[in-house]
């Protein structure tokens, strides 16, 4: 029996391969031959790191059309490639553009999908993925359609592992969608938070509506600075315009998995927990002893974040 062919959808950012795509090579290599699909004008720079992390083939298309976020050309080219190469499984990272491509691809091929998988493997011939449901349940699911099986893997479900291999590069022609490319990107504006990237941070301090007013968010930033931590936020204060969307942690924001997550004035709504529930240690500061965040916290402090945060920052400073 030929080896199972497992593709990973590779997103290329300003710094090369998106870390979430690189992580996918670990389960891909465990399940069969790992192959990376790279549609990006500067994709060739990434082939060595892909090889090093387990890809044996890179399907590369460097067409200029892929310079922008454009779902239809990605899907049109991918559909052609799938039909000629017949992969068994395609893994997608939990990034916004990858999700758009995967969803449109599923609708085009009319195959089933598994989203938000925290683990994926084959049991004999059967694909099995674990998917969390709410905060308390986990299901194991499979797909009765395909190939290809389409599975989106949650952030940080796996760790990238350099193995020292190298990949064979195969050029892929870009396919123009029959109806042209209908979405035009007029402008792209970077709005990243200053300091440490949320997704890479090992310590995160997040604030919520319990801080009372926008000026008080500074208390969170001060503590973060002292702890060398990244700064996060609940959606309530993102929507209220206190901080940019790039700070948002949760179901519709970033998924983080730091070693320590400090939540100040955050109630712990299920949609927030969806983004930080896998943190190793959670410290919660909330004035309401019944706040759901306490169910998840390792250390819960019932009290006023506005008085505790400055004291804490002071103490951490003196400890260093």
């Amino acid at each position: 029996m030929p080896e199972r062919r497992v593709w990973i959808w590779t997103e290329i950012g300003a710094d090369g391969v998106h870390p979430l795509s690189l992580e996918l090579l670990t389960p891909a290599s465990a399940m069969g031959t790992a192959e990376a699909v790279v549609f990006s004008p500067n994709g060739s720079g990434s082939t060595s790191v892909l090889g090093d992390n387990g890809a044996s083939v890179v399907h590369l298309c460097e067409d200029q059309v892929f310079a922008d976020y454009v779902v239809e050309p990605h899907v049109a080219t991918l559909v052609e490639l799938i039909s000629s190469e017949q992969p068994d499984l395609i893994l997608f990272p939990s990034t916004f553009p990858a999700r758009d491509v995967m969803a449109r691809l599923a609708g085009t091929l009319r195959v089933g999908v598994i989203a938000n998988a925290s683990a994926v493997e084959y049991d004999g011939d059967q694909l099995v993925a674990s998917v969390g449901y709410g905060a308390d349940f986990e299901s194991r699911v499979t797909l009765a359609s395909g190939p290809p099986h389409l599975v989106q893997v949650r952030r940080k479900a796996y760790t990238a592992e350099a193995s020292g291999g190298s990949a064979e590069v195969r050029e892929v022609p870009a396919v123009s969608a029959s109806n042209g490319y209908r979405v035009q990107v007029v402008e792209t504006v970077q709005e990243t938070s200053e300091g440490i990237n949320l997704e890479d941070a090992s310590v995160i301090v997040s604030g919520g509506r319990g801080l009372g007013q926008p000026e008080n968010f500074r208390l969170v930033e001060d503590l973060a600075k002292e702890l060398n931590a990244a700064v996060g936020a609940s959606r309530a204060i993102v929507d209220a315009g206190w901080v940019p969307y790039s700070y948002q942690v949760g179901q519709t924001g970033k998924t983080v998995k730091p070693s320590v997550y400090v939540a100040a004035g955050i109630s712990g709504a299920i949609q927030h927990i969806a983004g930080m529930g896998n943190s190793q240690h959670v410290i919660a500061i909330n004035s309401d002893p019944e706040a759901p965040i306490f169910e998840l916290a390792d250390l819960g402090v019932v009290g006023d974040a506005l008085t505790i945060l400055p004291k804490l920052t002071e103490r951490v400073r003196s400890e260093r």
Partner: peptide
């Protein structure tokens, strides 16, 4: 096409210390 094989409760082992 997506079939659920099983569904189980996740054991949350967190022991919260509240002060």
């Amino acid at each position: 096409r997506e079939k659920v094989l099983d569904l189980s409760k996740v054991q949350i082992e967190k022991q919260t210390r509240v002060v």
